[in-house]
Nucleic acid binder design. Sequence first.
DNA 1: GAGAAAACTTGCGTGCACGCAAAAGTCCTG
DNA 2: CAGGACTTTTGCGTGCACGCAAGTTTTCTC
Lengths: 239, 239
Amino acid sequence: MQICEHASLRARSPVWNADPVTTPPPGLRERKKQATRAALREAALRLAVERGPDGVRVEDIAEAAGVSPRTYNNYFASREQAIVSAVTADREARVAAAVAARPAGVRLADAVTDAVVEQYTGTGEHEHGALLLITTRSALREAFLDATADIEPPLTAVLAERLENAGESTARVLAASVAAAVRIALEGWLRPAGTAGALAGTGAGGLVVPSGSLPDRLRAALAPLAPAFDAVERREPVR
Amino acid sequence: MQICEHASLRARSPVWNADPVTTPPPGLRERKKQATRAALREAALRLAVERGPDGVRVEDIAEAAGVSPRTYNNYFASREQAIVSAVTADREARVAAAVAARPAGVRLADAVTDAVVEQYTGTGEHEHGALLLITTRSALREAFLDATADIEPPLTAVLAERLENAGESTARVLAASVAAAVRIALEGWLRPAGTAGALAGTGAGGLVVPSGSLPDRLRAALAPLAPAFDAVERREPVR
DNA sequence: GAGAAAACTTGCGTGCACGCAAAAGTCCTG
DNA sequence: CAGGACTTTTGCGTGCACGCAAGTTTTCTC
């Protein structure tokens, strides 16, 4: 049974629904699935905050959520993914929604950049505390960075709709490039203080202090992609 | 001890050396490391071909290479990575080398595209057989696709040198976008035959037939990025 | 409303994957 | 050349992560 949104399957089974208005209300089975997923995320984050990230096992999370460890792995492929999922709270899907919400006359490159900056910096102090938690462990940091790949499927859908004649492949490459740029900006922002290379590999100890302005990093990372967006938006024959 | 080139560390500790001529010859320790890595790769591929990909355990590979399973995991983070590493044979680094080898007057977007197409299609029948092996198992396919991320670090170094005033971040975003585009092209090419979505998740059974022309897919995937390369090459202020 | 089909949960067994620490090997310095 | 420093190998223990199959729950059809 395939519930786990494994990274390799994300592009093929997006959780984001571009047209939720016309779908029928979910049945009991679907509601129970969502409830289980939410319970697992909440338990993962709560236990990680209470006990420290190393003090939480899959068995603990599963028990707190009222399911078996096997069921946990039906929903999340690793211990870290549940914690990160609770922290990011489907932000990746919200990036696409924010792009879709921009007026059609806005330059697409600007719309994408503004949406990313808005969603990645407009966070409450709840996430700030959780982000501190994440930065203390390399496995959590990696899972947090890996989650940027989730930007691609919903953004592909939005870009495909905005760029009618460009084709699915072009939309997908642009969306994947945005995800890559966001990851690079976050990596630079979360790089461990001091001797970065030596400490980055350690599971603990290296104190990671978010450095510099995240909006500036995000804008700088996304800027090189603007000409690609402009060309497709003008419907130039690319290449 | 950090020998494993884990995906998360690749960007920070590239194996590709931009200037090998001036480095001193490696010592015994370094030569033994390279020999161990080569032995593990060779053993992994040979055993996978002989017994089928499911018939090979880490313990088997380690024994065939003359090291312990713990040492195996010092070099490779998963069973699949050794097999894929043997198949791709550092192709990702060769992409960057091929770009670097292009004359300076060649349009950079063309140089990158031609280098990618050349390295991903100019393969002997040795790899063709190994590719068939990879496509029969989803875990191997995923590891094969994940390996495209290795394009980024060496290509970043080459782009940073070619685009002197663009900065490391821009080079990195462009290189990461190329890696993303290559992955998308390969995903489309290796998508399972018939009902793709239903079978893709299965570990076995789904017969994956490389479909369509890989060069065409690669060129199509890379085309949307050309304006981004052109803008940076012309040293336009991007954004 | 009952039965079949589909989906989900779960126990079990197996093979990892990794941190830790001790032992061994390599390199460097005096 | 010997000893210290650094790196690598390895055993051990632990916590996963997943495939398989049986049981349970939900949905659908007649």
